[in-house]
Design a protein around this nucleic acid. Sequence first.
RNA 1: GGGGACGUAGCUCAGUCGGCAGAGCAGCUGCCUUUUAAGCAGCGGGUCGUAGGUUCGAUUCCUACCGUCCUCACCA
Length: 491
Amino acid sequence: MQTSDTNDQRAVRLEKLAKLRELGIQPYPERYDTTSTCLGARALPDGAKVRIAGRLMLFRSFGKLNFGHLQDPSGRVQVSFQRGELDEATLKWVTKLTDIGDFLGIEGELWTTKAGERTVQARAVSFLGKSLRPLPEKWHGLHDTDARYRRRYLDLLMSEETRRVFHVRSRVVSLVRSYLDQNGFLEVETPMLQAAASGAAARPFATHHNALDVDLYLRISPETYLKRLVAGGMDRVYASGRSSRKDGLDPSHLQEFTMLEYYAAYWSYRDNMRFVREMIQTVVREALGTLKIQVSGNEIDLGGEWPERSYRELLLEDCGIDLAAHGDHRSLEAAIRQKGIDLEFKKYRSRAALIDGLYKVVSRPKLIQPMFLTGHPTELVPLARRSDADPGTLDMFQVLVNTWEIVKAYSELVDPIDQRARLEEQVAMREAGDDETMMMEEDFLECMEHGMPPISGLGLGIDRFVALITGQESLREVVFFPMMRATTDSG
RNA sequence: GGGGACGUAGCUCAGUCGGCAGAGCAGCUGCCUUUUAAGCAGCGGGUCGUAGGUUCGAUUCCUACCGUCCUCACCA
């Protein structure tokens, strides 16, 4: 072949494609029937007949005997193309016109090589799809992060670890669904485009609807819609879907992320703590076969009871400051300064924000093993119910594992008078310049005035959860196509 | 947004204290009937991210820009 001076492996492959067509071989055929997966074929006895299909990943030629590896979702199997076992015409196009990366269908029978490798001896070969570009390096695969995310299909082909992570992700989503279904929850959907973004303190992405001439926001949380459904008599509902927030980007934050939210009438946050722990343990056990996971050098055990610690306990222990002794913002700030703890005080506008900021610096980095965090100050979440015992705190918990907040849940605020006051506080903060507060939502308040039962709801960050249990340190590793900047011609 | 690292062949990576750009894999030609990332011999393949600048000469030094990752800040 004289095409090597073109500096283009694609040109060589296009030529092979044309030659296949000349031989009457359709390079992109309609279909193919198999009797086994690649991995399944290896378990068959010698002499067994089999039809398998997959992508050719390796090819070693000895002239009259050739070995290849066919890969499908189950794994790989070695195939052999041998003079005397396969007709000469087929042997010729297999060795001359196929490339690594092509799809082949093999009909043949099992045998075992001298080296003990279970192999499918090809008796007939069907061409199932031409690849015009070379695969990444067979040993190292794709290493460049940018290339792995932008061309995830290649990463998936080349990396067993990538395939494992996304397989676990699919299993987790499916297991969570069936767990909730079995416990009487109904899966529902809520709007992604909303006139007012609600349910969380975050900046929404904005867009515009031309026909209606209205500004719309992409959802930041399904929360208030799910509560409307509970008010409508749907006592247990859940939604698993994408929300997006215009926040910073780091290994534990994505622009768009998948969140599971469920709501149960007549539950308190304490019912919810028990339920979610059992749900997580069931899901992880079934997805991984163990409750012990390795991530960022730590072994984490999700089994057993998880300890419950309050903000007050943690802060007393980690920096010696007792929240009960500092009931207002100024006093707390003075205490923190006195301890010589370096915080950017000007960005914390309330005592609650300051408590949360202090916790994130002195306590959260130590929280490796699974734990329930409770005792959140009231101003932190305008949709959560105040504690009857201490109205300054909320009936709320978070699940922390490996310093990540995996779950946030609370007894829902269902008192419309209190709700209105709490949202008005948010609006006031927004007018004072905080653009991550909640917006007023009159029709949600109207819904609440029609009456709501006691409710506890929960949000589980699916991306974080999957990253945690697969040992990934970045959420981008558990999303097929994480957001990337558009490439330009100069880039 | 601040700071840092990186960008060299289709892929994984060397390298140039400024002087004609390297390897392995992949590709092409040939040999080979038991390989396991097969092997052997030979061949081809590069705007060294982009654009400027300094210089006799820039892939190398400088500046800006593009992209990725890490980190700080913000948030989940």
